[in-house]
Design a protein around this nucleic acid. Structure first.
Lengths: 248, 248
DNA sequence: CGAGCCCTTGAAACTCGTCAATGATCGTGG
DNA sequence: CCACGATCATTGACGAGTTTCAAGGGCTCG
């Protein structure tokens, strides 16, 4: 079996309790995982959408391209992340997806999704998970719209750290982040040059170093306060007092 | 009965065909609509969410506030728009909501939502509708991140025009837009002053005038091309090949 | 060992924000 | 009915943050 299934399970289990049988089903669906090379265009804006991607390992992003080449990255998908299955209800995607680093990806068919949806716990976990993804997009809008370059970079690093920590992809206060500064720029709406200067500044202040595809947070409290980062929006928040799991 | 129910029905009917009985149910749920004054804070970030708002008339926005007062508006809700019912699955909201102009709003309880969800057509329409809302957020991220002030303003006006047209809230190429330039600034991540200058420029070029809470588009083709606007992301896209939807 | 990608740095230019002041408009109360 | 205050639009001058252009250096991979 795929050695990475546990990350996906771990992600979803934060949002609703999963029985052993449900975990087995998730594991089964990761068996068919395939390797995708960097730069593989998983889907293009406008494509019909008949598949849901589960990223077991590696790094993928969603993005939009303007006619003249400007690119806005809309989200990252790390190990344990998945696309929004509700997209299957539409007949085209509004954004593109692209593999940033060689990745292990399981491609779910609508039939597989239906099997998952039959389990209320899994359905609930996935719904809550994709609500968190929406919350991340909201926060990115705030980030790009109203924070300075320094705050933006700091905030994104806090967010990624928190997300990776949740699936066991951090070591102490360090993690692998295989992004170029140009890609960070397309994410944060900054030029690659300015991302560089900002990273230098963060290093100078001994808050974070980002070198050799590796982020090391030297002063988490300092970084968090520089960013105005509040992890609340990433919280699983599955605890509804006095209810177990059946809304809707 | 509320004279505005038809906007909500019209909105949803674009995403899935609704039977007469289903339309009656929607109408029934708008009966309890109440008037809300401007500046009413419908919900604050962090609040538990146990209600879904349906905006029948007026103007509401979702937003996030930074500790120092900077504000990013995340979305507008015009007549016919509604909040995302899946939020009920969480025990807190990540963003705040606020009434911008006096509005007629129907407040749905979880019980009402469950009644709606029992109708597959309605459930489908709502799901697709909220996917469109997500697509709008994505587009706003591109807007704020990678478009110039001039493109941003143009793009937003194109979007609003298209959305209002879909529910019959436009007259020829004009529509009411009761936003201050400061609010536009908080939406587009521009200062109010710069919004003003940009609007002047648009007027000078005879593309759009925005005066007395009223937008008049003089040259739609010109505006669209200045904005790089492609209405695709607002499309109802209910057309699944091999089916003939009855949506209006 | 070279080619290509990425990081780094400097200088100049530009977009947009801030500050400040003047008008216009509107609702309210005297 | 008019005066008043408040909110909003408009305009100018100035400054700050960020982009663009350009060049050099380091690393990796074939």
């Amino acid at each position: 079996m795929s050695p990475y299934a546990s990350r996906w399970i771990r992600r979803l289990a934060k949002f609703a309790p999963l029985t052993l049988e449900e975990q087995r089903l998730l594991t089964e669906l990761t068996m068919a995982a395939r390797s995708f090379p960097a730069n593989d265009g998983l889907m293009k804006a406008g494509d019909p959408c008949d598949r849901v991607f589960v990223i077991l390992d590696g790094l993928v992003c969603r993005f939009k391209l303007l006619p003249d080449g400007r690119r806005q990255i809309l989200s990252y998908l790390f190990g344990g992340d998945m696309g929004d299955p509700r997209q299957l209800l539409l007949n085209y995607t509004d954004s593109s997806m692209c593999v940033l680093r060689p990745s292990e990806i399981s491609v779910l068919t609508p039939a597989s999704m239906q099997r998952l949806e039959r389990h209320p716990n899994i359905a609930l976990a996935i719904s809550r998970y994709s609500l968190m993804q929406q919350a991340i997009t909201n926060e990115w809008l705030v980030n790009v719209g109203h924070r300075t370059a320094f705050e933006r970079v700091s905030h994104l690093l806090c967010e990624i750290f928190t997300r990776l920590e949740a699936v066991g992809l951090t070591q102490d206060h360090a993690f692998e982040l295989a992004l170029t500064q140009a890609e960070l720029g397309d994410t944060l709406a900054l030029s690659a040059v300015h991302v560089n200067r900002t990273l230098m500044e963060l290093r100078r202040l001994k808050l974070v170093t980002f070198q050799n595809r590796r982020v090391i947070i030297h002063d988490y409290a300092g970084l968090q306060s520089a960013a105005g980062f509040d992890f609340q929006y990433l919280r699983a928040n599955e605890e509804t007092p006095g209810r177990t799991s059946t809304a809707m």
